[in-house]
């Protein structure tokens, strides 16, 4: 089995702090230390998030291949389920329509899924203009590799707040978060 964290306690702590900073400051890009020898299709940032947040108590859906599933089962022990039942999702290919994931309820919006999406690239300082809680004025972020129409569907979903899902966008060792509150304006 390919390895997980080198130090289970301290690596999880530093990855969590990056994840917390990312969720608290949507669109800001955080850097995770590089990991060697991950299963096919799994990149360091997404893998570190799984090791940090996912376990036997968090049903997971993923489109990842056999090797990655085995690795997740070994290191995280998360039960694999259908998208609509998942607390966490790991997307390594094309992002399915957001409506396939859980969005919680008005009384328990925290039941909305956390979706970890591997994208081609995250470029801070250009692209989308993001606003909302966590953002002083505007954060800018270019995301390459999301399906066409993503921004329109994201903006449409914002109307259902507090229900919704929260995204981690990952590329290589980089990650950024998109909590359900963030507003996206496409650059013109």
């Amino acid at each position: 089995m390919k390895p997980g964290f080198h130090d289970l306690v301290l690596d999880a702590q530093s990855c969590f702090r990056a994840a917390m900073e990312a969720m608290a400051r949507p669109g800001r890009v955080q850097e995770i230390p590089p990991t060697e020898g991950l299963p096919n299709g799994l990149e360091p940032a997404a893998a570190a998030l799984l090791l940090t947040l996912v376990d036997a108590d968090t049903p997971l859906w993923t489109d990842a291949g056999e090797e990655a599933r085995g690795w997740i089962a070994f290191h995280c022990g998360a039960p694999l389920v259908r998208p609509g039942e998942a607390g966490f999702a790991l997307v390594t290919g094309a992002l399915p329509p957001l409506s396939r994931f859980r969005d919680g309820s008005d009384e328990a919006p925290q039941d909305g899924a956390t979706v970890i999406v591997q994208v081609q690239d995250l470029v801070p300082g250009e692209g989308w203009r993001l606003s909302g809680p966590g953002i002083e004025t505007k954060h800018r972020l270019r995301v390459n590799g999301l399906p066409e129409g993503f921004v329109a569907s994201w903006e449409a979903r914002r109307g259902t707040f507090p229900r919704g899902m929260d995204l981690f966008l990952c590329s290589g060792t980089r990650l950024a978060a998109m909590p359900r509150t963030v507003r996206i304006e496409e650059s013109v």
Partner: peptide, 25 residues
């Protein structure tokens, strides 16, 4: 480290992230 076991920390960390995603809830 920091007294809590890792499974408990994960549970609390997940709650922190959802808390940040839904401010004030």
């Amino acid at each position: 480290f920091a007294y809590l076991d890792e499974a408990t920390k994960r549970m609390i960390r997940r709650a922190i992230l959802k808390g940040l995603a839904i401010p004030g809830h």
